[in-house]
Design a protein around this nucleic acid. Sequence first.
RNA 1: GGAGAAAUGGCCGAGUUGGCUGAAGGCGCUCCCCUGCUAAGGGAGUAUGGGGUUUAUAGCUCCAUCGAGGGUUCGAAUCCCUCUUUCUCCGCCA
Length: 425
Amino acid sequence: MLDPKYFRQEIKTTKELLARRGFVLDVETISNLEERRKDVQIKTQELQATRNSKSKGIGKAKAQGEDIQPLLAEVATLGDELKVAEDELNAIQAELDAIIMSVPNVPDETVPDGKDENDNVEIRQWGEVPTFDFEIKDHVDLGEKLGQLDFETAAKLTGSRFAIMNGSIARLHRALIQFMLDLHSQEHGYTETYVPYIVNSESLRGTGQLPKFEEDLFKLHSEHEFYLIPTAEVPVTNIVRDVIIDDDYMPRKYVCHTPCFRSEAGSYGKDTRGMIRQHQFEKVELVQVVSADKSKEAHEELTGHAEEVLKRLELPYRIVNLCAGDIGFSATKTYDLEVWVPSQKTYREISSCSNFNDFQARRLKARWRNPETGKPELVHTINGSGLAVGRTLVAIMENYQQADGSIRIPNVLQNYMGGIEEIKI
RNA sequence: GGAGAAAUGGCCGAGUUGGCUGAAGGCGCUCCCCUGCUAAGGGAGUAUGGGGUUUAUAGCUCCAUCGAGGGUUCGAAUCCCUCUUUCUCCGCCA
């Protein structure tokens, strides 16, 4: 959430900034509520102050053996009055909170204008798009020809948008996870972490998936309000929820592999073929928790860490700066890494690296103690995929395919594959 | 799953016959003083969030918070209810 002060003192500016991403801030409703909040809060606190001082007086009088009946009469109606005021304040506050919680983050000044993905700005490209002197197949055909990718049986077990992997493809998928975890934990300074795949609604509110995006989530029918995680971002970032981090433990850098579960009710019809868009997929996630002055730098660094995976896998990719209309709800700036997918003759998103500045931290009450001031300050959170494993597998299968349908193994993965150099047909 | 105990500030730990206890004491930390070093000693300070005031800090002031949420009461860390978590014992289990 945004700083409540933005809604008091700088609401006009905030409205303009949010308009860049196509969000219409209802200034009038918020200002009216805010005005009432102020009145009622002052009144409530005054009543509370009166009650507190009178009650203390009663305590003293009683201790000295005085008659407290007159004092009791004085406060007789105070309780009711206070209750009314408190209820009203709570109601206003709840209404205000509901609105504020559904307001997205404001875009950073370096975010380009635009309303959708067509307005995203390419920052750079890396690698050479491969050329083939034979008719290429997409990963679905490649996988089925190998007998190692099976969507039909998965549909029988569960439904659409699930996959079964077998044999060397399953191993390659696992190898990718190992490789990514090793790279980030051994060379990029991240702490490998293992977290629950089921979280409560508080955690989802903290990172911004709730209250607005419940339809994207799988909710469990348990006695508690539990959800399957849509990304490791949720459990990992919530590690610092309600915590004041000591300076010695800043910055925090986590790398975490989890399955991700997405209902994505809104995106049916898109990418129905193959593994691009699944209800369940694996992802290696990078999360950094840093002080405010370091977040831009950390965002660039983290994006570089994700890029390094593609470089070592020798997969051609480009990096785009998402425009204001395309960045996610909680993000102030996002770089997408897009990998070349030969069958689609285009770059497809494989990682999304976002800076959330203090937007998540404010919801999470995630702070660190600045040794210079001695005061707690909101942290900044940054995260990105490093990378989405299923899509990386797709990219390798398609970019490394050979005429007969066999698939070469990228050099850096061969050790993880028992030394084999290709998946033979 | 059954039985019992507990949850207090950065940590340890008092307080549970309701009333200057937002919270004793200790440790830690910060600043100052003293001691020629070392060790020790003396003093002061040290929770978080929010509101008002202010251009804004600082300051002043008020409110809230003793696991969470309700309730009783003029008044709750203290009493009642619900929930969560932790510990001990038993059972079960990868």
